[in-house]
Nucleic acid binder design. Sequence first.
DNA 1: ACATGGATTCGCT
DNA 2: GCGAATCCATGTT
Length: 199
Amino acid sequence: MKKTINHAFFERSPQIIARNLLGYFFIRKFEEGKVVGRIVETEAYGNQTDLASHARFGVTERNKIMYGDAGVLYVYSIYGIFWLTNIICGKNGEPGAVLLRSCEIVEGQDIARKLLEKSKFVKADDRLATGPGKLSLAFGIDKTDNYTDLIENDIISLEKGDPPSDIIETQRIGIDYAGISKELPWRFYDGKSKLISHK
DNA sequence: ACATGGATTCGCT
DNA sequence: GCGAATCCATGTT
């Protein structure tokens, strides 16, 4: 039995969890095998006071998942082209999520490549899961994976890994609309990794 | 029922 | 650095 992660791990602030998840392994099983990615880039999204968060307008049909139990996947579509993969954080009633932005695929690169090639909007080079849209493609994640509990289910999971020696904190990407919140240092990445979406 | 715009990516300038 | 691809959640009529 591998090291497990319990729900309590996710019942903390998204900033703490986004940082802690660096070096962890994100895993999805397929019939042909499994895809394993070392997480090297994340972003935290907070409550109503975070003007970049989907929770900034209060509860809606799409974002109500952010107010629910931690440790479940929040998957939503963006630009009509991509799915983005998040993990719900915080205690029940406190909205928060961590966006998975980049992985180093350490197993199942052939499976990930085939999944990427199904999309006409990405190029399947050696940066297979670099960027949140490509990461979701590489793990075959779409709206059918929304609400998946990472602790309970047997297909998608997280395993502990060693934290990077060099963790960089910067502003989040693609949130120019967020006013003062765009300056929050809530993006985290492994400073030694080459597979980061933006430097 | 309709208008708006986005937690992206790629290719061209 | 900028525009296009493309669709659904959201807010407004």
